[in-house]
Amino acid sequence: MARRILGTLALILIVTGLYWGLVEAPPDARQGETQRIMYLHIPSILVAYLSFFIVFVGSCLYLWKGERRDDNLAHSAAEIGVLFTALTIVEGSIWGKPTWGVWWTWDARLTLTAILLLIFTGYLLLRSLIEDQRRAAVSGAILGIIGFLDIPLIHMSVYWWRTLHQPPSILRPDKAPWDNIDPAMLWPLGINFVAFLLLFFYLLSLRIHLGEVEEQARRDRLHDTA
């Protein structure tokens, strides 16, 4: 029931966010209408980061206490994080084509996002390739922890790699995108962010429920064969 309320709230905010982002918000002075993609882009990457943080927390808790629930949380968050990271890259690419004239450039942030996608699709792949559930959970937890610890190091190295060799690109990590943003654009961004957050928690609770049902089904099978 709580999940249904969460889902309804998310849906209402998504529709409001769509209206504000596509109709109410003014076009950007320099980027024109393509700026509207940012109302999706920024919330999706923030949600992706949130989910990888949850993967890290769930992995640590699982190794510490060994409870299935924590592993289910990490696994669920990873799956949703991969979805939102992939969407972030697609949005960025579609935004980049009219803005920069190319679908892809080896900009520090783009590269970092792509590496995140590689690491966490690796996480899902690893889990799917190990039969034994307990072993899959432990392996996933280790990748979840190592991957998360690696993110700041990858961030630093990729940023240096680009900036020591060519002038900083349009998106600079040292400057938050909302520093010089018009309040008329801040509103749709805020609404969309809350909408994405609610959507994320709705999807997460759905995915966790799936994990629980699958776990029960597995236990039943074991019970029947025993």
Partner: peptide, 26 residues
């Protein structure tokens, strides 16, 4: 970690190389 996974010879570099980026760049 990949010792008991299926297709482990393929899985190991897939997991390892993205994590190795600071080392490669460094």
């Amino acid at each position: 970690v990949t010792l008991r996974a299926r297709a482990r010879a393929l899985l190991l570099p897939v997991l390892l190389f993205p994590l190795m980026i600071p080392v490669i760049l460094g």
